[in-house]
Nucleic acid binder design. Structure first.
Lengths: 309, 309
DNA sequence: CCGCAATGGTCCATATTGTGGACCATGGAT
DNA sequence: ATCCATGGTCCACAATATGGACCATTGCGG
């Protein structure tokens, strides 16, 4: 898997195998989203069809992100790993509710009206973290001249929720809004994991064990090692082991209760992460992480004050 | 704002038939969203749980819109009309996927992380209509000094997808982003309906018959009459029959194939809709509707050109 | 202080519901 | 004409969601 990622495209595109290093190219390897349900060890509770539908919805969004005409049924089935009939049935339901729309010509699926509405409604809502972090993201992107990300913890996974392009010439396509990976995979994600207690780390690793089968080179031992190193350094470093050549550095963002709820990270090419610059970046990120925490404290206080009145 | 609205649906209020005129008050009557599944006459196909889940998701978004701490389980069950256990089970699934989050203190539900992500992804996507209409909405709001809306057709229903506040002192809370009503109810919605062929009108009315039970005063005869009048006038007028005192005027927006896919509308109080101003507004809206259609034509052309290459 | 009526949440037998392998139609490439 | 991949449909089966009854808390009012 992910080898033939190429398949990505799907249709005509005669399976042009990217000349290696195809950053942008292989980024469609967003199967990352597919696996998710298995939170923890227990899977007894029952609303599977809903979970499946929601995962697929997300998948449509991610796959159709860079492709304006949407994702084909074949691709969705392939990437989601479910039988075609099921995928199709679910898509019909999603279309019926307007969360997905189907291009009448190409028969491809993309996010629909309701998805946008939902976003509008969600955005309207106080998105503390997003709100509090935008300024920081911009500052980091500007002064580092690289692409910066906000990764939010969600259970045992990390979701990229913001992405800020830096003014520099280097563009990194390893991570985009909506991508979800198990905690520990990627700089921001690893920063969050490393900031958890030892017990929590074990729980997370147990939870994501099966999912991590799809990420070669991220077995338990390696992750333990990475966590250890990150804690010593005071920052998490992704030295290109997700996508060769794509490095990144991240630090955790803590909420007012000191729980690591997110992470800031900066991505670029290996050359831009020599020793001196690492410290520089780490200091910058730590400062901004603290500033976000302060902003969160404020907004929380004002909220509870309002609530009391 | 909408202060006591709170109570609204909520608890005690023993089915209080609002003392009329309850502008803001009754707007929480967003059950409008609840009914939807029954598209058309046929309901054989089967992915009901998914539909239910998606409807509930939307409901969470709408109910929690103005309430930063979210909607209570009780409210959601009441407004959705399904048994508590079901609603709860669905909510658990939505929470598990991150589309909804539950306030740990109040136990209330609001849109979660994934909802925002989805919006981000959907927004990223080319939202032709939204894109093409923003300028028009702003222009209309500015020059009319009233609140203007974009209503998009979705099956036999109209969904409010944009809302632009005008600079004037009058604020209208009859319609908000995310609200869905059967075609014919509300100015924009009626404008779309009136722009359909007679056959289509019949189909729509048949489809929404049961839903319209919840809208007193919108039986088939009345709607036929309204459609007739709208066609004669060249614009749809809502003379406060949804919410007393809240008037609005709308015209349909046609896509390049001349199908009415949306509508622009302006809402205000009755006093601001005398004969002269109606014509003025209608002309303004028609002009902007044409301009949107032109923009759509352009974007569609450039897209197909790109696709061919 | 003790109900009383809300609330959020859980259980579990039932049959309704989604499942997915097999199948068909189409269309582009060889 | 052949082949493969595509989007889409069918249908017997059983796993699945369903929802009424039930429980635990909380907050109000007499």
């Amino acid at each position: 898997m992910m080898a033939d990622v190429s398949a990505d495209a799907d249709a005509p595109r005669p399976a042009a195998p990217p000349p290696e290093l195809g950053k942008a190219a292989r980024r469609s390897a967003s199967w990352t989203i597919a696996h998710t349900a298995d939170d923890g060890a227990d899977r007894p509770s029952g609303s599977q069809s809903i979970q499946r539908a929601l995962v697929l919805l997300n998948l449509v969004g991610v796959l159709a992100r860079d492709r304006p005409d949407g994702a084909s049924l074949a691709e969705l089935t392939r990437v989601s790993g479910r039988p075609k009939a099921s995928v199709h049935r679910i898509l019909v339901a999603l279309v019926a509710e307007g969360y997905v729309e189907q291009d009448p010509d190409t028969a491809c699926y993309r996010l629909g009206l309701q998805a946008g509405v939902l976003g509008e409604l969600a955005g309207h809502r106080a998105d503390d973290l997003g709100e509090a972090s935008t300024d920081s993201l911009i500052r980091i992107a500007d002064s580092s001249t690289d692409t910066t990300f906000l990764t939010v913890r969600h259970g045992s996974y990390g979701v990229c929720t913001r992405r800020q392009e830096g003014p520099g010439p280097i563009r990194n396509y390893a991570l985009a809004v909506g991508d979800r990976h198990p905690l520990g995979i990627g700089a921001g994600s690893l920063a969050i994991l490393s900031a958890l207690s030892d017990d929590d780390v074990e729980d997370v690793l147990a939870s994501t064990a099966t999912t991590r089968d799809h990420y070669p080179g991220f077995d338990d031992d390696t992750l333990h090692d990475l966590v250890h190193r990150s804690r010593q350094n005071g920052y998490a470093l992704n030295d290109g082991r997700v996508i060769a050549g794509s490095w990144a550095l991240g630090v955790a963002v803590r909420d007012p209760a000191d729980r690591p709820v997110a992470a800031l990270s900066v991505a670029s090419i290996a050359e831009r992460f020599d020793g001196a610059r690492r410290d520089e970046l780490a200091a910058l990120l730590h400062a901004e992480a603290r500033s976000i925490r302060a902003a969160l404290t404020d907004s929380q206080k004002s909220r509870s004050a309002r609530g009391r009145s």
